[in-house]
């Protein structure tokens, strides 16, 4: 799955879904993950990028990334790769 292409994300972490009218805010780490996801980076690339900027082990970052993706899916901010 990938982040929906029409999702708008501002520099300060405000996320807007124009299809549903829903809006959310993400913290700086979430924003970094979201931007990397939107650029099409793989999970391992995202984990490496976050690890380069924050003091945290890879397992913890991976768990946070998977939680974040699940939350994005629940909020209908993700779409199938072929959509």
């Amino acid at each position: 799955m990938k982040v929906k292409s029409n999702i708008a994300v501002s520099d300060n972490g405000f996320v807007f879904n124009p299809g549903s009218g829903e809006s959310y805010t993400v913290n700086p780490v979430g924003l970094e993950m979201l931007n990397l996801l939107r650029k099409g980076h793989s999970h391992s690339e995202i984990i490496a990028a976050i690890q380069a900027n924050y003091v945290a082990d890879a397992a913890m970052i991976e768990r946070d990334l998977l939680d974040f993706l699940e939350m994005m899916r629940q909020y209908r901010l993700m779409q199938h790769d072929d959509e």
Binding site: N6, P18, G19, S20, G21, E22
Partner: peptide
């Protein structure tokens, strides 16, 4: 199209947003 963001106890929109649906 609009999605209600804030509604009164009568269900009337007191705030809303235009959406692409």
């Amino acid at each position: 199209p609009m999605r209600k963001q804030y509604i009164t106890d009568k269900g009337k929109a007191w705030g809303g947003i235009s959406i692409a649906d």
